[in-house]
């Protein structure tokens, strides 16, 4: 009898611990999300809204700009996320080697970029790739380019610069996670592999990656989510241009709400499209992660 009251009491404490945080999320996240959903069922300009059912969702499929922005974001996603995570993994496994000299300094320098704000890093990279920026000056000095290259006005190179900026800003951040994960792996596993004659790359693929699977899953979901919601970099580097070649979905939502004649209902429908994409991709990633 005494024991059950104790369990009850402990259980009550458990709920007391989690409820404040849960309430905050419900009130400040789920409640506005529900009102955004109700908004997505309405059409009209400014405050002259009327109920229209799923019309906004049907419109999505005819909206060339929306479809292009989805395509852009997917391009960022399939190129940037794997490259960045692989680079972070490689860096983490190099930094994890206790014999490496100057480990502390290398580690600090590699982590450094995540201390800058997104707006700052965007502005710095934009100036690098400007017409008389450092990149053109260097490449022309080396004889690679004959005349300055207009990076940010080329549909493909502009995407490249955005991908580079995100990679610069976030690789170090992901390296921290991998490094932490690696430090949990027993050194003796590597020792044994080395005695068996496994090469460094073999160790990387058959020990590091499988043992880091949970961390890789975590970082993949975080990065995917971040890329799908990409906003600051695109807005500050290319503002979506040339044309709409670099436009992201979040920026399109912003334009629909604030730059153009406001269509909040349709903008809300577009944001639900991101939500669905994030949810589907996370689900796939978790499933794939579990299987391996």
């Amino acid at each position: 009898m005494a024991k059950t009251t104790l369990t009850k009491k402990i259980n009550l404490y458990g709920w007391l611990f989690v409820i404040p945080a849960a309430l905050f999320i419900f009130i400040l996240n789920f409640y506005p999300m529900v009102s955004a959903f109700l908004l997505s069922l309405q059409t009209g300009r400014g405050n002259n809204l009327k109920f229209a059912g799923l019309k906004n969702y049907a419109r999505l499929f005819q909206d060339e700009m929306f479809l292009t922005s989805v395509g852009n974001v997917i391009t960022y996603l399939v190129i940037q996320v794997p490259v960045m995570l692989l680079l972070a993994l490689v860096l983490a496994s190099i930094l994890n080697n206790p014999k490496l000299k100057g480990r502390g300094i290398f580690r600090t320098l590699i982590f450094l970029p995540c201390a800058t704000s997104l707006v700052s890093s965007a502005m710095i990279f934009k100036s690098f790739f400007s017409i008389d920026g450092i990149v053109n000056t260097t490449l022309m000095g080396l004889g690679v380019l004959q005349s300055p290259m207009s990076w940010l006005t080329h549909p493909i190179w502009a995407k490249f610069v955005i991908i580079l900026t995100i990679t610069w800003r976030w690789t170090g951040y992901n390296t921290v996670f991998y490094l932490a994960g690696l430090q949990n792996i027993d050194r003796s596993v590597y020792e044994a592999a080395r005695i068996d004659g496994a090469s460094a790359s073999r160790q990387f693929f058959s020990i590091t990656i499988p043992l880091l699977k949970p961390v890789i899953l975590l970082t993949t979901i975080m990065s995917t989510n971040g890329t799908l919601q990409l906003f600051d970099e695109v807005r500050n580097i290319t503002n979506g241009g040339p044309g709409i070649a670099t436009l992201s979905i979040s920026q399109y939502i912003y334009n629909l709400s604030f730059m153009y004649n406001p269509q909040f209902g349709y903008a809300a429908a577009v944001s639900y499209a991101i939500l669905v994409m994030v949810a589907v991709l996370s689900f796939i990633q978790i499933k794939v992660g579990d299987k391996r």
């Binding site: 999320i25 400040l28 996240n29 789920f30 409640y31 506005p32 999300m33 009102s35 955004a36 908004l39 989510n225 799908l228 919601q229 906003f231 979905i249 979040s250 939502i253 912003y254 709400s257 909040f264 903008a267 809300a268 944001s271 639900y272 991101i274 939500l275 994030v278 949810a279 996370s282």
Partner: peptide
């Protein structure tokens, strides 16, 4: 809630 884009919450918030 991690999947909710902030742009969607802005106006209601």
């Amino acid at each position: 809630s991690m999947m909710v884009p902030f742009a969607a919450l802005m106006v209601p918030l």
